[in-house]
Design a protein around this nucleic acid. Structure first.
Length: 458
RNA sequence: GUGAAUGUAGCUCAGUUGGUUAGAGCACCAGAUUGUGGUUCUGGGGGUCGCGGGUUCGAGUCCCGUCUUUCACCCCA
């Protein structure tokens, strides 16, 4: 007998994990809906050409490809395939036509292009589904994980950016995460930097390196860029720029003069300034929001604001990221230029961080509110009617299915963190005065089912 | 994809320079208590030492391979 195992980088989620995961998911969903986003789901698999060429060179390697067995079988009999496979394993045309979803943004763009006629712009959708990456797993990095995306397409308004920040703040607040920062930057600012330090055309290398600033520090970034052939004059002006001091507003003001000759740099400054202005109009503050000149983010399709959310005191990557992309739908042949902006939460990382910081509320774990206990077949039969009444009143309840000792039933309630036990014996059955026991305090009293229901629902 | 560590009961870990029948705590099950749990006491079940090969009279311990998990790089949620 073979021992069962999970594929590398995948996990099962038992009831305890699911309770916590759903706490995160419903929190995020509720907030997305509150801001006017509507749900969308797309298939786990896409045609490979939908996925290919969208995630850069590194990303392409990480797409899970699904081999089509049909095309081979159509041509050869099973026997021949086996024979050929054993000899020419690598030569057979292993036609790969499908791939697993790598993120939720590209499938969304595909959906928008395919359904353009029935979509009213601006279109706001959210999507909560697993994605797959053929990456090597490590802490906070899995091969199958969930993303929660909210995107708006069809408007350039920076109100969207501001609302993204508001949603992030609200999600973090509802999840009891207090120590975190929403980093924000703008591709225009990054491009402006490239212009100012005379590195136009080499933005890729430059951005990848400076994105690592908080990880490897200035010396590390310098070293990497020197190796790539940047001059120390360029690097000096680069770090003078990145090292701009002050709060968000002060940094923006300082950059305005730096970018006097860079239109793209100025555009970045103006847009970020407007985002901060909008936050004020929403009567929100910019606590936790940090304009980070060195924030770059990998995905090459971003063109405007970019976001990233990090939780303090946990050694886990970012729990959320996003930004504005101006021409995503053009990759699918759309002539119309649609601008989009979105945010993605990685709930697996949120989970890991919250677990580490012990932020899950206790109630998350309990399932039923009431366990109905009994002593024999007669009381059990009578108790069934009580369960129905409890459930009809909207109280999550269950009955212990076997006739067994009360001790065992109370034990069960303890393990499932059920708050109340309704004990139904012969006496209770006759009088209709039922024993309700509070499992935390140990107190118990005798009440009728109607008063019990009243107490539990008010 | 590159480099490096790890693996002993459900969990956390002991296991002496290779030497009899591999241990502990927690968890689990049963009883003390045939209508009262989360405390206590008593007893019990559970391990092909990740898997496969090798060295040896003898391997949990040494060697090789493989898988898993983890860490760094790469990249990212």
């Amino acid at each position: 007998m073979e021992k069962p195992a999970l594929p590398k980088g995948t996990r099962d989620f038992g009831p305890a994990e699911m309770a916590k995961r759903q706490f995160i998911l419903t929190t995020i969903r509720t907030i997305f809906q509150k801001y006017g986003f509507q749900p969308l789901e797309t298939p786990a698999m896409e045609n490979l050409n939908t996925l290919e060429g969208k995630y850069g060179e590194e990303g392409s390697k990480l797409i899970y490809k699904i081999r089509s067995n049909k095309s081979l079988r159509a041509r050869l009999s099973g026997e021949k395939i086996d024979a050929l496979n054993s000899i020419y394993k690598f030569w057979l045309p292993q036609k790969s036509e499908l791939g697993l979803r790598y993120d939720l943004t590209i499938p969304f763009a595909r959906y928008v292009v395919m359904n353009r006629h029935e979509i009213t712009l601006p279109f706001k959708r959210y999507q909560v589904q697993p994605v797959w990456r053929a990456d090597r797993p490590q802490k906070g990095r899995y091969r199958e994980f969930y993303q929660c995306d909210a995107d708006v397409v069809g408007t350039d308004s920076l109100i969207c950016e501001a609302e993204i920040i508001l949603m992030i703040k609200e999600v973090m607040h509802k999840l009891n995460i207090n120590k975190y920062s929403v980093k924000i930057n703008h591709r225009g600012i990054l491009n402006g930097i490239a212009e100012v330090i005379a590195a136009v055309g080499r933005e890729g290398e430059l951005f990848v390196a400076i994105d690592k600033l908080d990880k490897i520090g200035e010396p590390g970034v310098r070293k990497e860029l020197i190796e790539k052939g940047f001059t120390s004059t360029q690097l000096d002006s680069l770090f003078a720029l990145i090292g701009t001091k002050g709060n968000n507003r002060e940094k923006l003001t300082a950059l305005k003069t730096t970018f006097a000759s860079s239109t793209t740099g100025l555009k970045g400054v103006h847009e970020l300034t407007e985002v901060f202005d909008l936050l004020n109009h929403y009567r929100a503050d910019d606590n936790h929001v940090e304009f980070d000149i060195a924030l770059a983010r990998g995905l090459s399709y971003y063109t405007g604001c970019i976001f990233e959310v990090k939780i303090n005191d946990v050694a886990i990557g970012s729990v959320s990221g996003g930004g504005r992309y101006d021409n995503l739908t053009q990759a699918f042949g759309s002539k119309e230029q649609l601008s989009g902006v979105g945010i993605s939460f990685g709930i697996d990382r949120l989970y890991d961080a919250m677990e580490e910081l012990k932020l899950f509320p206790k109630e998350t774990l309990s399932s039923s509110k009431v366990l109905v206990c009994h002593f024999d077949e007669a009381t059990r039969a009578y108790a069934l009617g009580l369960v129905t009444q409890l459930r009809a009143a909207g109280i999550n309840s269950e009955i212990y299915p076997d006739v067994s000792k009360l001790k065992k039933q109370l034990d069960y309630a303890n393990k499932k963190m059920i708050a109340f036990c309704l004990v139904v014996g012969e006496e209770e059955m006759k009088s209709g005065e039922l024993t309700i026991k509070n499992m935390e305090s140990g107190e118990q009293e005798k009440l009728t089912i109607t008063t019990i229901i009243h107490k539990l629902t008010h």
